[in-house]
Amino acid sequence: NITNLCPFDEVFNATRFASVYAWNRKRISNCVADYSVLYNFAPFFAFKCYGVSPTKLNDLCFTNVYADSFVIRGNEVSQIAPGQTGNIADYNYKLPDDFTGCVIAWNSNKLDSKVGGNYNYLYRLFRKSNLKPFERDISTEIYQAGNKPCNGVAGFNCYFPLRSYGFRPTYGVGHQPYRVVVLSFELLHAPATVCGPKKST
């Protein structure tokens, strides 16, 4: 009989979020998941679920829940969905086509923008091939755009693969920082350890 609540607040209220190319993952297990707390949290810009209804989450049990978190621009949030393409979905964070879970995003301009620009948040701009679902690539190898080998030196046709967002408070909404948490639900042939409040007695 599990009684402790799942530590969703640790994920959602973290002081610093990860850059999207180096997205953070927390495994959540052996706890009671009260999703209504999240669902009623006012400032969400997006709360979209795939393969599961957000209002039914509290009735369900899962083997594991993974909480992935990172920061992207407002106009990139739409790429955090199954079957998407674009710089983020291709080179930074890719969801599987059969994704079961929820994508939760909110504007973090007050936290993550600075006058003069916040350059701490990076994304991958160049990559030889697209990421596989949930693949994480933190390499900083110089990207070779031409035929000539770069030998690890940036220059003509040789690019550092990461780019900084440089968030400023005055940017338009599409270019403002958004914090994103992706909850993915794993249902294995194993005992369920993460259940909603109704199922955990």
Results as ranks from 00 to 15, higher is better:
Cys102Asp: 00
Tyr159Asn: 14
Val77Phe: 05
Val11Gln: 03
Leu183Ile: 09
Gln176Pro: 02
Pro191Gly: 14
Tyr119Thr: 15
Val71Thr: 07
Gly51Ile: 00
Lys110Pro: 08
Ser69Gln: 03
Arg168Thr: 11
Cys102Met: 02
Phe185Thr: 01
Cys49Pro: 00
Val37Glu: 10
Phe70Asn: 02
Tyr165Leu: 04
Asn157Arg: 10
Tyr119Ala: 15
Leu57Gly: 04
Gly196Ser: 11
Ser78Trp: 06
Thr85Tyr: 06
Phe70His: 01
Pro169Phe: 05
Pro54Gln: 11
Ile138Asp: 13
Asn92Pro: 03
Leu125Glu: 15
Tyr66Lys: 06
Ala89Tyr: 01
Phe134Val: 05
Arg168Ser: 13
Val52Arg: 01
Asn58Glu: 11
Lys110Val: 09
Thr201Tyr: 13
Gly74Cys: 04
Cys31Gln: 06
Lys94Gly: 01
Lys132His: 10
Phe160Trp: 13
Tyr165Ser: 04
Ala67Glu: 01
Phe17Thr: 02
Asp34Gly: 02
Pro133Ile: 02
Glu135Tyr: 04
Val173Gln: 14
Gln84Cys: 06
Thr100Val: 15
Arg73Tyr: 06
Gln84Arg: 09
Ala33Lys: 06
Val194Cys: 10
Glu135His: 07
Ala145Met: 12
Val180Cys: 07
Asp9Arg: 11
Asn107Trp: 03
Tyr119Met: 14
Leu183Thr: 00
Tyr35Ile: 15
Lys128Ala: 11
Ile28Trp: 15
Val115Asp: 15
Arg16Gln: 13
Ser113Arg: 03
Tyr159Phe: 13
Pro177Gln: 02
Asn24Leu: 03
Phe12Arg: 01
Leu111Asn: 12
Tyr121Ile: 09
Phe156Trp: 12
Leu111His: 13
Arg168Asp: 15
Thr85Asn: 09
Tyr50Gln: 03
Leu111Ser: 10
Ala192Leu: 12
Ala89Pro: 08
Ser108Ala: 11
Ile28Met: 15
Tyr178Lys: 02
Pro43Met: 04
Glu135Pro: 01
Phe126Thr: 14
Thr85Ala: 09
Thr140Cys: 09
Ser108Lys: 01
Tyr35Asn: 06
Phe185Asn: 02
Phe160Ala: 15
Phe156Lys: 15
Lys94Glu: 01
Tyr66Arg: 05
Asp112Trp: 00
Pro169Ser: 10
Asn151Tyr: 10
Ser36Val: 04
Val103Arg: 00
Ser164Lys: 11
Ser129Lys: 13
Lys128His: 13
Ala81Cys: 01
Val20Trp: 04
Gly101Tyr: 00
Asn13Glu: 04
Gly74Gln: 10
Pro96Phe: 00
Val194Ile: 10
Gln176Phe: 01
Glu135Leu: 02
Pro133Asn: 05
Val180Asn: 00
Phe126Trp: 15
Asn107Cys: 06
Glu141Asp: 14
Ile142Ser: 08
Gly172Thr: 13
Pro169Ile: 01
Ser113Leu: 04
Cys150Tyr: 05
Glu141Gln: 12
Arg179Val: 04
Thr63Phe: 05
Thr3Asn: 09
Lys199Asp: 13
Cys31Thr: 06
Pro43Ile: 03
Gly117Phe: 06
Ala89Asp: 03
Arg25Phe: 02
Ile72Thr: 04
Ser78Asn: 12
Val181Gln: 00
Ile104Lys: 00
Thr100Gln: 09
Gly196Ile: 10
Val20Leu: 02
Val52Leu: 09
Val71Cys: 04
Ala190Tyr: 10
Thr55Trp: 11
Asp68Pro: 00
Tyr119Glu: 15
Ser139Val: 05
Tyr91Ala: 06
Tyr121Leu: 13
Asp97Leu: 11
Lys94Ala: 05
Leu162Glu: 04
Asn87Val: 15
Cys102Val: 01
Ser29Pro: 07
Lys199Leu: 11
Ala33Phe: 15
Asp68Cys: 02
Ala18Thr: 06
Asn147Phe: 11
Asn4Glu: 12
Thr85Val: 10
Phe70Arg: 01
Lys26Phe: 06
Phe160Gly: 11
Lys114Ala: 14
Thr15Glu: 11
Val20Met: 02
Ser36Trp: 04
Val32Gly: 05
Leu60Met: 15
Glu76Asn: 05
Ile142Ala: 09
Ala67Ile: 10
Ala42Cys: 03
Ser184Gln: 08
Phe47Asp: 01
Pro133Gly: 07
Leu111Pro: 06
Phe8Thr: 02
Ser139Tyr: 04
Cys158Ser: 06
Ser164Thr: 12
Asp34Pro: 04
Cys158Phe: 04
Leu57Arg: 03
Asn151Trp: 09
Gly174Lys: 11
Ile28Pro: 02
Phe8Glu: 03
Pro197Ile: 15
Asn147Gly: 13
Lys114Pro: 07
Ala22Leu: 06
Asn75Lys: 11
Val71Asp: 02
Phe41Leu: 13
Thr63Asp: 11
Val153Leu: 12
Tyr123Cys: 06
Asp90Asn: 11
Phe12Cys: 04
Thr85Leu: 05
Phe156Gln: 15
Pro177Lys: 02
Leu162Arg: 03
Pro54Cys: 05
Ser108Thr: 08
Arg168Gly: 08
Pro149Asn: 12
Tyr91Val: 05
Leu188Gln: 15
Lys128Ser: 13
Lys48Cys: 06
Lys110Met: 09
Gly174Tyr: 09
Asp137Leu: 00
Asp112Met: 00
Asp98Thr: 09
Val37Tyr: 15
Trp23His: 04
Gly166Phe: 07
Asp97Met: 10
Asn13Thr: 04
Lys48Asp: 08
Arg16Asp: 12
Val11Ser: 02
Ser19Ile: 00
Leu57Ile: 07
Pro82Thr: 02
Glu141Val: 09
Leu125Lys: 15
Val32Thr: 15
Val181Glu: 01
Gly155Leu: 07
Val181Asn: 00
Gln144Gly: 09
Leu162Met: 08
Tyr21Leu: 03
Ile138Tyr: 08
Glu10Ser: 09
Asn109Cys: 08
Pro177Tyr: 04
Asp59Ile: 03
Asn87Gln: 12
Tyr35Asp: 06
Leu57His: 03
Asn147Asp: 15
Asn92Thr: 01
Asn157Ser: 12
